[in-house]
Design a protein around this nucleic acid. Structure first.
Lengths: 222, 222
DNA sequence: TCTATCATCGAACGCTTGTTCGAAACCTGT
DNA sequence: ACAGGTTTCGAACAAGCGTTCGATGATAGA
């Protein structure tokens, strides 16, 4: 969907999307008013509605466009790679690279996932499911190939997404390691964690005393 | 702070907090009106304001109370354990156990972190920083003890938080593995990932070609 | 230059929101 | 049965919200 030189209309729409993303990322979708966006884009309230039919559609446009780009880039990147481990590494690299370079949009994608509903929600979720399934398939293949045992694939997949998508909560490009380092660290932690170090496996069960598990039932449980 | 039999007032306050948490978790803080809470608790609008001074204070009370409990439980659990690896395992176990048993509150804690401001924000963040520092200290100690190299401690720490805190986005107690299994999986992935499997380390650098890193710069970057 | 389409705007509407206030109702110890 | 504090409530307010509408300006092909 993305690409091509773009008309005047497309350019301005993208400008609106980018500006809105920045405000959504900072204040959150629901705390951002169309008037905030109007002020930032220097357009009138009604002028904005020429580019989207509702505030929710604006959020959808941001999310859908953002997600499409990540997935298209990813597909291109792994197209002619066979080794599933390498495919996964490239996926992680691409995801984090895009995340860091488009922090606002990705934050909006990650954090406002439940702020859309109806048909909008369905469309974004369809894309999301494709992406999740891609990772699950990769992990399944890797697990078979390398004889990984005792790991729930679904837990592993979402652990990886957790590691990657959480970064908008803490990552500071000026203080922290750069994108390459970030990819390297996360890939190393997840991948050698998933494949498993046998020396760790040995001591894993020592801690499994069930007694702790019921300790932390809190005041909330009345 | 938690504990003790509690007065009538305290009980009702907790009931208000718990009910509000459930609605916040489902619809989000900003999309929830005091009228929603009024309906769910069967109290009047003004009746609610006897228990909190503002909507934001209500959110603060939920977050602060929730966080205090997690940390207190954690402290008790690791109080008389020396081995830093075991301390970390217990921390993970406690965190996930509490998360799964109090999904609503923990979702509100994780997802609405930026919905409070001012003094409220400062107070919650002070607690948060204590908790983060605890994990960072543990990881530092483990890294020294086991001679872990080439891992950024900050990245590792927040990767772990990402894995743990992301679960509200996908975990379904009825479909997925139970809490014990969840802890086991996440502990295994993170810990053996952090400690590192040397056989993985060998092939790590193969993928590091920089050429990919600039590929995914998207349309957003105009 | 005329015209049709594209792009923008000011002003307003109807609705929901968080919060307040003074008065009632309830409870408890005397 | 009374008094005092605790708890609850109905009704209202002001402010902000997303959205619409008809009209205006800009642009470009005939």
């Amino acid at each position: 969907m993305p690409g091509e030189p773009q008309s005047k209309y497309d350019q301005k729409l993208l400008h609106v999307l980018k500006t809105s993303s920045a405000i959504f990322a900072e204040k959150g979708y629901h705390s951002t008013s169309i008037r905030d966006i109007s002020r930032a884009t220097r357009m009138s309230l009604s002028g904005l509605y020429y580019y989207f039919k509702s505030k929710e559609e604006l959020l959808f446009l941001i999310q859908y466009h953002c997600f499409s780009t990540v997935m298209d880039d990813c597909r291109k990147l792994i197209a002619d790679v066979d080794d599933p481990v390498r495919r996964l590494k490239l996926l992680i690299e691409n995801h984090l690279n895009y995340f860091v370079n488009n922090m606002d949009e990705m934050k909006v994608l990650s954090h406002e996932a439940n702020s859309i509903s109806g048909e909008f929600f369905r469309k974004v979720n369809a894309k999301k499911r494709q992406y999740v399934d891609l990772v699950i398939d990769l992990l399944t293949e890797i697990a078979r190939e390398r004889r990984v045992k005792d790991v729930d694939i679904r837990v592993a997949a979402f652990s990886l997404f957790g590691m990657m998508n959480w970064i908008y909560n803490w990552y500071n490009p000026r203080k922290d390691v750069d994108v390459a380092g970030l990819s390297q660290n996360i890939t190393r932690i997840f991948l050698s964690g998933f494949l498993g170090d046998k020396s760790i496996e040995a001591e894993r069960l020592e801690t499994g005393r069930e007694s702790h598990l019921d300790r932390a039932v809190s005041i909330w449980q009345q």
